[in-house]
């Protein structure tokens, strides 16, 4: 008698060698990626890194110039049931002329079988979305809130949020985070969210994918990402010595002081060596790791006072 292991569940998202060109500009290049079902994945990277293009491909709103995109095992561009399994509200979403909130809420349930009218009503109330104004006259924050309503209430098996916090104040963002956690606890599904607010959303994320120049530069769990780098700071000479031969992702200088984000695991030996040299070490935060890959700092985060040197030395 042979013991057979059950076949592994296919990933919710599978990209293989995906490229997308717009005339001479390569928005995505050779992106290969698997996202398991049920994860909340943060899509991180600076403006123009290719995040929205990638999300458009996942939703079947666009098709790749090369490579293949599979969502739940099928091409979302051509396979109708897969297209309907994805909810993706763009940050510049178009709505028909004279469309109001009531129009959106009346048609959305027809398109999403799992639509939750209760969740939608709760969110509309929490975000105080106006019902009498045309959607085209909504403020930036109200448009983001409407996108959140559509995304969360749809309960689509793959829900994609494109910088859902744009224009939202801190209170409204907290509403979104709480509602996301609550709804996912009740109705688990795969979520992809692009964000620059890395620190603010870090606790929500299971995985991170960092894009830089249209390429994936990191694809890991949040824990793996956190363990993948550490910071060394102190006198420049000490930091120079401690990072010699290591792969430095980012480095900042301020006078005689230097701070470096180094790729690798922070071990006791590394920490002890740093102490002996008069320097300090610490685990790199996800934000620091993203910054090291060239992503922009979140709103309110002061820019580093020193220039970012390209001091990377292959390990």
């Amino acid at each position: 008698m042979t013991c057979q292991t059950p076949p592994a569940a296919p990933p919710a998202v599978r990209l293989r060698g995906v490229g997308r060109r717009f005339r001479r500009t390569a928005a995505l290049s050779d992106v290969t990626l698997d996202l398991p079902e049920g994860v909340v994945c943060g899509l991180l990277g600076r403006n123009g890194a290719g995040k929205t293009t990638l999300m458009s491909l996942l939703a079947g709103h666009d098709r790749p110039s090369s490579g293949s995109v599979e969502v739940f095992g099928a091409d979302p561009f051509t396979h109708a049931p897969t297209t309907s399994a994805v909810s993706f509200v763009r940050d510049d979403q178009r709505y028909p002329d004279d469309f109001r909130l009531s129009h959106v809420l009346s048609v959305a349930p027809r398109f999403h079988p799992a639509w939750s009218a209760e969740r939608a009503a709760e969110l509309v109330d929490a975000f105080r979305l106006p019902s009498r104004a045309d959607v085209k006259k909504y403020s930036r924050g109200q448009l983001s809130a409407l996108g959140i309503v559509l995304g969360l209430a749809s309960r689509a098996p793959l829900t994609v949020f494109d910088e859902p916090y744009l224009g939202l104040d801190a209170g409204a963002r907290q509403v979104f985070y709480r509602q996301l956690v609550t709804d996912l606890a009740e109705h688990p599904r795969t979520v992809v969210v692009s964000t620059h607010l890395v620190d603010e959303m870090e606790a929500l994320l299971d995985r991170v994918v960092v894009l830089e120049g249209g390429r994936v530069v990191r694809d890991s769990t949040v824990d793996e990402a956190r363990a993948a780098a550490y910071t060394v700071s102190g006198p420049s000479a000490a930091v120079d010595a401690l990072t010699a031969g290591l792969r430095v992702l980012a480095s900042h200088r301020l006078g005689e002081l230097r701070s470096a984000t180094v790729e690798g695991e922070l071990t006791d030996a590394v920490d002890a060596a740093a102490r002996r040299a008069g320097a300090q070490t610490g685990p790199a935060s996800l934000q620091e790791l993203v910054l090291a890959h060239g992503a922009e700092p979140e709103v309110g985060t002061p820019a580093p006072p020193a220039v970012r040197a390209s001091e990377g030395v292959p390990a």
């Binding site: 919710a12 079902e37 049920g38 109708a80 309907s84 399994a85 999403h112 079988p113």
Partner: peptide, 13 residues
């Protein structure tokens, strides 16, 4: 969150 089971795709609009 509990892991999800494989989704059955909804009927298309």
């Amino acid at each position: 969150l509990a892991p999800t089971t494989t989704h059955r795709l909804p009927s298309a609009p």
